[in-house]
Design a protein around this nucleic acid. Sequence first.
DNA 1: GAGTGGTCTAGACCACTAG
DNA 2: TAGTGGTCTAGACCACTCC
Lengths: 233, 233
Amino acid sequence: MTNQKSVSFQDIREEVIDRIQTRIWPQGSLLPTELELAAEFGCARATVNRALRELAEQGIVTRKRKGGTRVVTTPVKHAKLPIAVVRQTIEDMNAGYRYALVSRTLIDCPAWLQAKLGIPEGAQVLHLQCMHHADNRPFQFEERWINVNAVPHVMDEGFLTVGPNEWLLAEVPFSNAEIAFSAVPATGHLQEFLSVPTGTPLFQLERTTWFRNDPVTFVRMTFHQGYQMRTTY
Amino acid sequence: MTNQKSVSFQDIREEVIDRIQTRIWPQGSLLPTELELAAEFGCARATVNRALRELAEQGIVTRKRKGGTRVVTTPVKHAKLPIAVVRQTIEDMNAGYRYALVSRTLIDCPAWLQAKLGIPEGAQVLHLQCMHHADNRPFQFEERWINVNAVPHVMDEGFLTVGPNEWLLAEVPFSNAEIAFSAVPATGHLQEFLSVPTGTPLFQLERTTWFRNDPVTFVRMTFHQGYQMRTTY
DNA sequence: GAGTGGTCTAGACCACTAG
DNA sequence: TAGTGGTCTAGACCACTCC
């Protein structure tokens, strides 16, 4: 007896994926309406709705009122990259974490940063440089600028024992951000702090963060040689 | 009159985010139950459920049966990277796309690839090298290995005019994949095809793809100097 | 064992949009 | 303007897990 009380939205989601993969519903084709599918599967429309809604979020189908549900023609998949605090990333590798402050200076906001953050001229920013080690080997060099107006009591924090990343996460949680990944050559500070020859290719993550529409910080995180960021989709 | 017939799940989601950001519900704290929130907002429990479920998917709260809903202490945000076909990426930049096949060879699967794909010894793979240009400037060098057993009639395709990326997307749509991003130095083919000096840091994306649990392809895509992958979260 | 979230149902009204 | 998805409601039962 394989009877089940009711059809779950996950059953429907998988069945729909299967029909798409087996070309029962080819790319670009129109699916039956929610009502028709509900009748076919013997469940409520809400159940079908949830299944199809999730597939739409994944970018597998597109949905339009009156237009119906369609299998997308050129799938654009979304890789989900979990971005955690460096300490956690390192501890998840079962490595020992060590943090060190390199420099901490209050400066006038440079023009390039003003443009990036959209803050008024003459504003002051706190400029920080830090190192994050895994098992006493250089893991990440962090260079950060914090908008002092957005987080005034950042001036009371010395960042000697706790990194700005974690401090801000506790202070300004659940903010919005823009991220850019790139490959850069090791120069100046980087080659020095990450212990690599000049020009070594390094993986870099730049991030601008806002909290409730106020620009808070811009950070450039450069990883040790050979670092890979991985995910599934 | 700002009256509204009913409270939407989006209203609730935003109100909850607001209360978290303003520390009404600090990190680590327990939220009221769905029933309590439904009573407070004057809506059905299902509405509260959807709002909180989405926040849980975003990693802002964690939920456990009997344990209730809790604000997470160390947020792990998920950056969503849209991964499209190269042609589309280039066309979205309003640049002209050009594709060129560099080489196409049937080979015995090398040991490292056997391990990566988990395919039997002695299997054959199609090895391809291609270039993708944007406005006649090198944009991406693609090196790919295709499991011939998984897609037999790949042998009928010359890949002279259509890239393997697009061909596979049409042939084997909605597959699963593992991705790794890294920074690599330009060497051998790379410096040649991307027109950069030896050792230039380049952004690279490696991806292994399965279709219905069968390994299909492994691809290494190396981008032109200075390429950035961007997203919001 | 009891409390909480997870899900399904049946019905309703609304909002968008293709024809 | 008619058809489709988008959402809300009120109620129900279930599954997990903390105490």
